[in-house]
C-alpha cells in the first residue's frame, strides 16, 4: 500500500505550493494527476488513499482528477515504438519481450485549482 505514502508526498507538494502562493490559498478544490500505466501505482488505491492523506490539509474534500499515460516501449527486434499495456505484455508486432520501456512510468501532479 505504497499509494498512501505517495498521497502524503502529494499533499506535501500541494501544501508547499499553496504556502508559497500569493495571495494566500485557503482551500484546494481540485487536483490533477498524471499516472503512467506502467508506474506500478494502482489508481483505485490512490483514490482511496487521497482523502485519508488530505484529512488535515488544505486539500481536504478536494476532487482528484487522474489522467493516465499509456505505456510505450521500443522493441529491439522490430526497431519500432509499440504500445505496452503492462510489464507482462509482449511486443504487439513480434510477440517477444526484447524491448525497452520508453513511456508510462510517470507519476506527477500537474496542477491544482484553489480558492
Amino acid at each position: 500500500m505504497h499509494e498512501l505514502t505517495l498521497c502524503f508526498n502529494l499533499i506535501r507538494i500541494l501544501e508547499q505550493t499553496a504556502n508559497s502562493a500569493s495571495p494566500p490559498i485557503t482551500r484546494i478544490k481540485t487536483v490533477w494527476l498524471e499516472i503512467g500505466e506502467l508506474a506500478g501505482i494502482d489508481l483505485d488505491a490512490i483514490r482511496f488513499s487521497f482523502p485519508i492523506a488530505a484529512t488535515h490539509s488544505l486539500a481536504k474534500d478536494a476532487t482528484l482528477k487522474i489522467k493516465t499515460q499509456a505505456g510505450q516501449a521500443l522493441c529491439h527486434n522490430c526497431d519500432k515504438n509499440v504500445t505496452l499495456s503492462s510489464l507482462l505484455a509482449p511486443c504487439s508486432i513480434c510477440g517477444q519481450y526484447n524491448y525497452t520501456i520508453t513511456q508510462g512510468k510517470v507519476f506527477r501532479v500537474i496542477r491544482m485549482e484553489t480558492i
Binding site: L6, N9, L10, R12, I13, L14, T17, A18, A21, I25, K29, L33, V106, F107, R108, V109, I110, R111, M112, E113, T114, I115
Partner: peptide, 16 residues
C-alpha cells in the same frame, strides 16, 4: 473571482 489554477508539474516521487 474565487478560484485559481496553479500549475505544479512536479514528480510526486521527486523528493525521494
Amino acid at each position: 473571482h474565487d478560484s485559481r489554477i496553479i500549475q505544479i508539474e512536479q514528480d510526486i516521487l521527486g523528493e525521494n
